[in-house]
Design a protein around this nucleic acid. Sequence first.
DNA 1: CGAAAACAGTTAGACATCTAACTGTTTGCT
DNA 2: AGCAAACAGTTAGATGTCTAACTGTTTTCG
Lengths: 142, 142
Amino acid sequence: MNRFGSDISELLRQITHKQMRTETELMQQTGLNQQQGRTLEYIGAHEGIIQKALADAFRLRGATITSMLQGLESNGYIERRTQADNARQKQIYLLPKGRAVLEQISRAFETSNDTLVKALSPVESEQLIKLLAKINRGLDPE
Amino acid sequence: MNRFGSDISELLRQITHKQMRTETELMQQTGLNQQQGRTLEYIGAHEGIIQKALADAFRLRGATITSMLQGLESNGYIERRTQADNARQKQIYLLPKGRAVLEQISRAFETSNDTLVKALSPVESEQLIKLLAKINRGLDPE
DNA sequence: CGAAAACAGTTAGACATCTAACTGTTTGCT
DNA sequence: AGCAAACAGTTAGATGTCTAACTGTTTTCG
């Protein structure tokens, strides 16, 4: 009915939207955008991951991943290796330049998260995480 | 530290991202996208609103609003009137075609919200709304 | 009053994502 | 063994948003 800031879906959208602005700003220094940052982080935690798995993890299209990784590769952050045993897929690895920005990236995301939780008590934060995780799980099967 | 689905910021992002996909899909029938739908709804509730106010409400850039409204106008959903008393601004009004899709739009967003809350009990929903509203408020001043 | 600043909207051009169609590789089945 | 289907990745072209620079209008103030 009276949406405009009152229903959950809309609240989530508003918060996330503001959050993305903050993160884009925080990442400015690195010259990367928010999604590139997340991707480098993820690759760092999953060296040798293939593009399809990145697409699934972030729910982005294959074409989007191709394009983003081409950018990261040509700027020297990562390397894509075609494997001997399966020429269909490419494994992704961080290069030194990529590893070098990880610290800065994770600081940016932590700061961003802090601006969110600072409005809540520790108990409330815990509650919120539980509720969100529940929703997130509920969204997955379909 | 171990982000990837565990911190609030990331959970919000994941949920919202899935949600936007659902909504885009639900709105498919109307030929509008999710943001156009929200905008029409908002105009319906605030007839005569000016573009700047829409930009503020959705936190989109003026240029983005211009472009979106040009689309909605040329497709006959809305009308933009320059006022006599202030030639700087344009007031936005729904045309019959715009009013005609409102019903469908709000059903789509309700459905979308339902897929979220169905994972929660009524009590949990209430809790969640309170927590999110708190965060949202906390984000506003800056 | 008149110039400067603030404001609302627009245009041009960049960028990230999307879909659809395609290439090349691997798997599965008869 | 060999063909069809599934799969991973790429390309081309569309769309939505952004920033920066611009136009035209209104407000402010010396």
